[in-house]
Nucleic acid binder design. Structure first.
Lengths: 310, 310
DNA sequence: ATCAATCATGCATCTATTCTGCATGGTTAT
DNA sequence: ATAACCATGCAGAATAGATGCATGATTGAT
């Protein structure tokens, strides 16, 4: 109910270029350019200035974008309250999440919603956590399941979002089947300090998680290889190239020559998985139901693990 | 920046029929019907129900309309603050007011704005006070000069508007030139109690003002004739048909056989003239400047009167 | 210094939305 | 029973909006 051109401006404020805004919103660059020009005309404000080969927000533009945060939140709030009060049904619902969350949490959620609300059109997008936030801003999705990143620019108290912790997913270590420790059930990071490690490229989502785990125990690992997909990580380990960290949620499903060990010791590295929505929308019955389903699934995963560990 | 369809819904909430909404917003009835249908589809809410040959808001609809008040106010607020912070210029500015205000206050305001802000497109609409509020809701105008009506549904604390008192305009009495009191400067309402009175039709803007003036002194006037325009009032008085009340702001400009007398006594009836804007927009530099100009003009009128009275 | 890459924007074209005007069906009042 | 009123649907028209490519400007690399 907020003018889509203002939404576009907010997306631009996030990514800084017309092209990226177009990619994120689903418009063409020309359309974004025209929209922002029109927005300035209608409001009678100069929101953008040329800056080199790109554009930059003016002070007025930054002011407007920052001030629109509570406006969006209030609209979401009103919408949610009206849906709740009137017992109305939503037509479209967009979900976003990163790979293992998409598989383990989002897929069951979408399936459940499809049965409880047959008229609802559910769309699931697999995307990196940072992109999930952008997609929330762009209103392409309404709920995201992501890994909480303290290093990220989206803090707990960001005025644009509200977040709920779903579960803490521990990191395991995966080692080749012919490794001396392969017969063990658990290992400590110190024991594996001298191993060649496999990680993601610096700057990626999990790299900071990786380094954080090791700095916590005062060890600097030797990074031997880099991989993006967990599949690749596992394959590298199976080929005996080194050892790696693997979140418990990521399945090993019968990989050759790979063993998963629980990490013990004073620090057990985990990644925190949270659900994020646009601020104000959390009271919506659909969001509430979804969060409930997610929480049930998360709890089931946790209790399954407890039973496994016995 | 709020979706125009929501604005249309708010206007509908005021007037209750598609036709009236169309008239007020400037759309055709079909367009209004289509907009509201589309709004319900997009939001996934049922906002309207059939009620006899017309439509009625559902509980959800009323909830949404009521909840949109602060949303609109917040947007106006943001817009005003951004305009103020960025020293930006507005392109369009709509003014509304009733006849004597339009002549005495709005016309000078529009003239001043045209000279101080040549790029600004100023539009003045003459309209009854109640309609001015509707036009504010419909966003056809941005500022209205109206007579404060305690009887009206638009109170001082309406969440949709903010109001500023401009001046209290006293009511004079006009009598025929051959009337026994015509040589006097002042008169009391009691002295004129038995005269045949000329007023507006019951239910009109000034009728309540008229009766309030007399109930305050405990007199029930005999209503002999009714007229809509001040011009007609004056002509009736000039023809010797009776006496009437005339606001000081309404000019007599040399009418034949009509004398204007100040009212004295314990109660001096006045009408309060206020400026009204959409809540939140009052901080806008353009609104601020306009209110300043209006106030200056109002004060000038008051001091002119003081000098006249000496 | 040249070349390539990146970025925003304008224009022509097309598409989709949205509005209008009139006709229709249902509802109330005379 | 007739007339007035109200909302809505449809066909046509107008308008807004999006696309895709070409252009100009700027930056960084060779």
């Amino acid at each position: 109910m907020i003018d889509p051109r203002l939404i576009t401006l907010r997306v631009f404020a996030r990514c800084g270029t017309i092209g990226a805004t177009a990619e994120l919103t689903g418009y063409s660059p020309s359309a974004v350019s025209a929209q922002l020009r029109e927005l300035q005309r209608v409001l009678g404000m100069q929101l953008l200035t040329k800056d080199g080969r790109g554009l930059r927000l003016t002070a007025t533009g930054r002011f407007l974008v920052a001030g629109s945060d509570p406006l969006i939140a209030q609209w979401e709030n009103l919408r949610a309250a009206a849906m709740d009060a009137g017992d109305q049904v939503q037509s479209r619902f967009g979900l976003g999440g990163f790979s293992s969350a998409a598989a383990q949490l989002l897929a069951p959620l979408a399936a459940t919603l499809r049965s409880t609300r047959p008229l609802l059109e559910v769309q699931v997008l697999e995307a990196e956590p940072a992109r999930c936030f952008d997609l929330l801003i762009a209103e392409r999705i309404d709920l995201a399941v992501i890994v909480a990143m303290q290093s990220d620019s989206y803090g707990e108290d960001d005025p644009r979002f509200e977040q709920r912790v779903l579960l803490d997913d521990p990191l395991d270590v995966i080692i080749p089947g012919d490794h001396p420790l392969a017969s063990r059930q658990t290992a400590t990071l110190e024991e594996l300090a001298s191993e060649p490690w496999i990680t993601e490229a610096a700057g990626s989502t999990y790299h900071s998680l990786f380094t954080a785990a090791f700095t916590a125990v005062g060890v600097t690992p030797r990074i031997a290889h880099e991989a993006v997909e967990w599949e690749t990580h596992i394959a590298f380990v199976g080929a005996g190239l080194g050892v790696g960290l693997l979140p418990r949620l990521a399945p090993l499903h019968g990989a050759e020559n790979v063993v998963r060990l629980r990490i013990t010791g004073q620090t057990k590295p985990t990644r925190r998985i949270v659900a994020a929505v646009r601020r104000g929308s959390i009271a919506s019955p659909l969001i509430q139901e979804s969060l409930g389903i997610l929480q049930v699934n998360a709890n089931r995963i946790l209790t399954d693990r407890l039973n496994e560990d016995l």
